[in-house]
Design a protein around this nucleic acid. Sequence first.
DNA 1: TAGTGGTCTAGACCACTGA
DNA 2: CAGTGGTCTAGACCACTAA
Lengths: 245, 245
Amino acid sequence: MHQSETGLVQRSAPGAGAIRQALQEQIAHGLLPAMERLPSERQLSELFATTRITLREALLQLEALGLIYREERRGWFVAPPRLAYNPLARTHFHAMVEAQGRRPATEVLAARQMLASAEICRLLELPALSSVYQIRRVRRVDGRLVLYVEHYLNAAYFPGLLEHDLQRSLTELYRDRYDIRYGEVRFEILPTALLPEAAQALRVAQGSPALHITRINHDQQGRLIDCDLEFWRHDAIQVRVEVPD
Amino acid sequence: MHQSETGLVQRSAPGAGAIRQALQEQIAHGLLPAMERLPSERQLSELFATTRITLREALLQLEALGLIYREERRGWFVAPPRLAYNPLARTHFHAMVEAQGRRPATEVLAARQMLASAEICRLLELPALSSVYQIRRVRRVDGRLVLYVEHYLNAAYFPGLLEHDLQRSLTELYRDRYDIRYGEVRFEILPTALLPEAAQALRVAQGSPALHITRINHDQQGRLIDCDLEFWRHDAIQVRVEVPD
DNA sequence: TAGTGGTCTAGACCACTGA
DNA sequence: CAGTGGTCTAGACCACTAA
């Protein structure tokens, strides 16, 4: 459909698809390095001779592919390589991230004892009016916010939990202070969008695509000890599971 | 910010978020049954007293949440419940779907013998210039297209494969004709967008969010026999993995 | 053929970020 | 305070679907 009627007629409307491909190619060839900010939407729309809405459509497609991401009201950035994540592995976040040559960080948003919600009672198989510890954290890789987690711990197994340093790995804390190790693990993966609280914590637009992973952990004695509700930026990970026969 | 200056001033612009919530509530309460078509975008935008672009933004948010989906140029539909899927399970698609009270269907798009691409050589650990069988299929649940798969089989292990009925389960075919059963399984999950071929096969807009699952299967003797490249509609499944310690 | 979703134009105002 | 992304208005044309 090359309707090049005359040499003068310029392909006036590249369209969102073509813009996406152009940017995609630049990224693939490393002309735009990881975590580098793209030019502003207005500059790009001028560059591609189109409107901001069309240009934005192209950016949203790249976001869906996981090639770029945004920080709310700060701009668009080139996405770094995905983290390989095995939810079955017993290793903790910092070890996993460092093993891949990346820089991990954890921030505790809040920690408290509370009544288990209906959802948490179901996951931890607790009776009504049970008490749990809730820990809300965000985690970074190379400085970038990638994960919002809510941990819920069966309070019966972790007396005095809140007095410990919660910034460190819970896996280590369990082992050192409570002599508890992970046994059977179960998890669920749900592709969805970020809920308001998670979106705010990760400072991304509400409704951004995300991967919701629910982990349910037993200890070495088979007791159901805790569960994690994880919300990952969808472009930040690559789940990899290996299980021998 | 309720600037209700006079009683006459009507809240003119509900905004995409409010529209999303309104529709979300209707869906949650079952007023809009699963797989039912929503009114047209123009009707909805009139109903909510806004533009089509804003209304579309709300629909895209609901799509990201997995609550509604579209069929290209046919309209928006309420998403049915997700299918629980365990990639580690040895059971085949039809059995899995029926076990959840749903109606499965499979269509073979194409089947051929071909040279393995670099990517396939890597996955199947094959030397250069190896021959593989490629089978491309789409699968439905309750009539809805949900999965596009490309199977790649090490041709050395499956002589005369193309002469068999490929519409049935490969698991069964392996067992009945080649005395091959699944052993160790490895898989990867990548949240991304649909590639052009997958989008076309599933008849959805290119760039729709999707879950890309790569399965690598060994047989009972530990031989690497085949791999599947699966592209799921992101709202169609819920991956669930259980592994004893 | 009427109506649909897919795409695009050409602007606008706002809240917020970063210098 | 200038510039940014986030959001919105009010249209338009096209390819395609379904009757």
